[in-house]
Amino acid sequence: MVRRRPAYGAGAPHAVVLLGCFTIAGWAVFLVSGEATVWRMALWFVGAAIAHDLVLFPVYAAVDRRLRRATRTDLGNEEGRPGRAAVAADRVAVLNHIRVPALGAALLFLVFLPGILNLGDATYAAATGEQRVSYAIRWLWVSGALFLLSGLVLAVRLARRR
């Protein structure tokens, strides 16, 4: 295994976990292979992969690049200023405390997209017999709470360090 590590790039535990993931994925494909909607599921899967790789990834990579630029600080070590490592750690902490709630808000938006944008109201009413309540305000409240909680955690961490 030592000789194979440079070619593979990781150790044996990684290979075992990866093999397990492929086994579970293959089992899931086997279970749905007899379904009538398997082609529709495959189309959605391929479409999601393409949309992520060609649209979403460049968008959030650009946003992350701008966040990195916006949080960049002077790393000097003059009197009264923290050292290079402390400032760099603070910058990474700030960045991560923006990334995590943004990821949570984005995932919630994708999962509840029809409810947030009020799409499919007729289908929902036909299926349940009830009118759908818009999720937009709820999503905004949850997203705001995620950012507020992250900001509070950051403030506590920075205060404890100083």
Rank of each mutant, 00 (worst) to 15 (best):
residue 131 Q to L: 09
residue 25 A to M: 10
residue 59 V to T: 09
residue 95 L to V: 06
residue 34 G to K: 04
residue 5 R to F: 06
residue 95 L to D: 08
residue 60 Y to P: 07
residue 79 E to M: 14
residue 125 A to H: 01
residue 113 L to N: 06
residue 152 L to Q: 09
residue 160 R to P: 06
residue 69 R to W: 10
residue 31 L to D: 11
residue 124 Y to Q: 01
residue 15 A to L: 13
residue 115 G to R: 12
residue 2 V to A: 04
residue 130 E to P: 00
residue 61 A to E: 13
residue 33 S to F: 14
residue 43 L to K: 00
residue 77 N to A: 12
residue 80 G to H: 01
residue 109 F to I: 01
residue 104 G to Q: 09
residue 149 L to V: 11
residue 35 E to W: 14
residue 81 R to F: 01
residue 107 L to Q: 04
residue 33 S to T: 12
residue 93 A to K: 12
residue 61 A to P: 15
residue 139 W to P: 10
residue 22 F to L: 02
residue 150 S to T: 07
residue 81 R to K: 12
residue 53 D to I: 05
residue 46 V to W: 08
residue 79 E to I: 07
residue 118 N to K: 04
residue 150 S to G: 04
residue 46 V to I: 14
residue 114 P to Y: 08
residue 157 R to F: 01
residue 27 W to C: 12
residue 43 L to N: 05
residue 58 P to G: 14
residue 70 A to S: 13
residue 89 A to F: 03
residue 38 V to E: 08
residue 119 L to G: 03
residue 32 V to Q: 11
residue 94 V to E: 08
residue 83 G to C: 06
residue 80 G to Y: 03
residue 113 L to I: 06
residue 139 W to Q: 08
residue 84 R to N: 10
residue 31 L to P: 09
residue 32 V to K: 07
residue 69 R to C: 01
residue 132 R to H: 05
residue 3 R to I: 08
residue 162 R to C: 00
residue 135 Y to W: 05
residue 28 A to S: 07
residue 49 A to Q: 13
residue 118 N to S: 14
residue 72 R to L: 14
residue 128 T to M: 01
residue 24 I to P: 11
residue 33 S to M: 08
